[in-house]
């Protein structure tokens, strides 16, 4: 099962994903995609360490489905977190 590690960045609260180089990035496409339990465990440990280091809040692994190269989280909640609100805001 494909997974990514999602969190909110401490400084601005924005949704971020853990990338291969250890950076937290705002695009789900740029995050690490893993599909085995061991890699998942390592990724989560890395995220929790960054939470302890006050970089991010509440890192969790979420399941995603990849279709035509596009990653979509399976849960509606996480899909909305990744893509932003489904309604257009007044500006």
């Amino acid at each position: 099962m494909a997974q990514v590690l999602i969190a909110n960045r401490l400084s601005d609260g924005l949704v971020v994903f853990l990338a291969a180089d250890g950076a937290w990035v705002e695009s789900i496409a740029a995050g690490v995609l893993i599909d085995d339990d061991r890699a998942a465990g390592e990724l989560l440990d890395q995220g929790l360490a960054d939470a302890d280091n006050n970089l991010v809040i509440d890192p969790i692994l979420i399941n995603v489905t990849v279709r035509d190269g596009t990653r979509t989280p399976d849960a509606i909640r996480e899909a909305i977190r990744a893509a932003g609100p489904t309604v257009s805001v007044e500006t």
């Binding site: 909110n8 401490l10 400084s11 601005d12 609260g13 924005l14 949704v15 939470a51 280091n53 006050n54 809040i57 509440d58 909640r77 909305i80 977190r81 932003g84 609100p85």
Partner: peptide
């Protein structure tokens, strides 16, 4: 104190909430 790690998220959360600051899905 939160940004430099003197406060953990657990300790900070009630303090920010008392100032109306939530962490929601996309941002504070």
């Amino acid at each position: 104190r939160r940004m430099n790690g003197e406060l953990t998220e657990d300790q900070f959360k009630p303090l920010r909430l008392m100032n109306g600051l939530y962490l929601q899905l996309h941002a504070y």
